[in-house]
Design a protein around this nucleic acid. Structure first.
Lengths: 362, 362
DNA sequence: ATGAAAGCGCTAACAA
DNA sequence: TTGTTAGCGCTTTCAT
């Protein structure tokens, strides 16, 4: 195909190939506008506009001339200008803030959302907040300035009162995964309490009484709900000291791995472990899969290979969350101006091999 | 927290909750603009602009008045208008077209890219093409009209000549995963041939001679490279009829599953299988994991749980691909106007348990 | 240190 | 059927 030489000194690239022809830089030699097209077709600017937009009341022959001029010039309408003129104050962009779009939870959510809004001619702008509150603030501002038509946010902030003004100005917010605080806005959430309760009940039923919990950042409402509900169920079963085996703030796979190791080194060690999200479950699996007699495991969120690995999970459907989010959002865009709605999606326990491991002789 | 009632008749939602306060619809009662702010602060529109942008030459006291007026009014600069005025013809948006942003390959790529461009104040607009050529065309146009500053595209099209005009107008394209055809543009690709070769060599070394191949859409260049390179290695080892065990166009997990079953039902059945991407590997695993004596397996692309499942893979780093893409793109934006560059990233074979299964008595 | 006017590329309203 | 004018919200001259 092409002659390639091994890269020399380039950071991480493997091979670097130089192609033959030239490609231009960002030097912009004035794109053709409606004026140029109109001139070339020998019509007025408005006629050109009409012709290109198929507005009717344009002579067939004229329309063709204009179209041809546009093609020859490589004309492309300027969406920004159009929108500025049209409503002035809104675009066809939907903004979405998520913790980490590399995480399947967020990316499937985003993907489901995108598929729904695409048919309305809307585009999705996604940004990673890295679950960082400052990033979230800055990026929210940036999206709002870009005049996104609506904002979908998986927020890390403890309060959303600062968004009240925007909200009143008519831009729809849909909170996903985590609810709005101090602001009455639409939301699509999971039944975290129900899911965690099922998980706990399942383990109790199997005879476990010493159960470890590895949780995400403790400031996140999702995590709080999952942990407290799980704990409440244990307590109701007479396990008062459940917090003894609780480790929180395991926000990535590595720290989750360490947390699990920590739990297992205790004496007596827990006979079962509950992990509150997909990353933590992954970390736990990395540790458990090479143990001769691992403790039982239940994770929140489905895993890509959950069925094959035989991991018991509390599952739900992120793509569906995306679709529900789209629904709420589009209804707002279509004029619904009623009270804020919270859609709470169910979770489901899928018992698999990892929880069939008995409490043993602990 | 809030009173919730079970949803009645709602499509898939679980529970629907009505909040108390009101939330406005899209009725836009005129957002405040610079004019309003200026008026309220008792200064000219230009002074307001200067004050808000911290341009200097504004009396301290004036600046405060303006700032306060802006805050009270909930003023937010209009990015579209600003950009229109500024260059007229470009935004701070980067467009990215991918087959399925729900697929970890694309979402990690996108995430890596987003993390790099974010620091330059650029935002990433991602769209799913569903590997459909018509969608790709339409969405490309939409992004171009929105005047994205650059376009990242994992293309499904057989040719990209239609983009030549755009390219000459100065908008940088970076092709990812699949190279541009009929257009000289930057690209970030994988060493598909090398990876497939390694996979074949590995299986040959272990004594396999009857090897099944399950491929993706046959029109995709990535798939062609992987399949033909794999086949070439087999042929070089004296296996002339390798195409007998080739099944292509298994584009999703389900069809991949069926393809694998098909291969296994043959007599004699292959003693090993090569799957050309992550989805197909997943499908294969679903079938193989419950077989008493499954054939050996090698998959292209790493899997989330590849290490735990013990799947031998030809791996690479999608997030790094995103970073490399960002690098090329930002260099263009910074004025590099030289020849198009292709960065070809290496792949690496990770031998794990799934390929240690011997050819058996086939 | 502040203001007036012009215009980015487009479309709506109103002529012609 | 076509053209003229104005203006979306902002920033850039060029005054003052």
């Amino acid at each position: 195909m092409i002659a390639c030489l091994p890269a020399s000194g380039r950071r991480r690239a493997g091979i670097l190939c130089a192609m033959t022809e030239d490609a231009p830089g960002p030097h912009r030699p004035g794109r053709p506008g409606l004026v140029e097209v109109a001139a070339r077709a020998g019509v007025s600017i408005k006629t050109a506009s009409r012709a290109l937009n198929g507005e009717g009341y344009v002579a067939h022959e004229t329309r063709q001339r204009v179209q041809q001029a546009a093609d020859e010039l490589g004309y492309r309408a300027n969406g920004m200008a159009r929108e500025l003129r049209l409503g002035g104050n809104t675009s066809t962009l939907i903004g979405m803030l998520g913790g980490d779009l590399g995480n399947p939870f967020y990316s499937k959510l985003a993907s489901g959302l995108e598929r729904e809004v695409r048919f309305r001619g809307l585009q999705l702008v996604t940004v990673n907040t890295d679950e960082d509150t400052r990033s979230e603030q800055r990026l929210t501002d940036a999206l709002l300035e870009r005049r996104v038509r609506a904002l979908v946010v998986a927020s890390t902030l403890p309060s959303h009162e600062h968004l009240a003004a925007e909200h009143r100005h008519g831009i729809p917010f849909v909170f996903v995964d985590r609810p709005p605080v101090g602001l009455s806005a639409d939301a699509v959430l999971l039944d975290n309490r129900g899911g965690a309760h099922q998980a706990a009940a399942h383990l109790l039923e199997l005879g476990h009484t010493r159960i470890g919990i590895v949780g995400d950042l403790s400031r996140l409402s999702t995590n709080q709900e999952r942990v407290t509900s799980f704990g409440a169920t244990l307590r109701a079963a007479g396990i008062a000291d459940w917090r003894e085996h609780l480790i929180e703030d395991a926000h990535d796979v590595d720290t989750a791995q360490r947390a699990v190791l920590d739990l297992l080194r205790r004496d007596p060690a827990p006979t079962a472990i509950f992990t509150t999200n997909n990353r933590i479950t992954t970390g736990a699996l990395r540790v458990l899969h090479r143990l001769p007699a691992p403790p039982a495991l239940i994770g929140f969120d489905e895993l890509d290979m959950g069925d094959i690995l035989g991991v018991t999970v509390v599952t739900h459907d992120p793509e569906n969350m995306g679709r529900q989010t789209a629904r709420l959002l589009l209804e707002r865009l279509d004029g619904y101006a009623g009270t804020a709605r919270w859609v709470i999606l169910p979770t489901r326990l899928i018992p698999r091999a990892s929880s069939r491991r008995p409490p043993g002789t602990g």
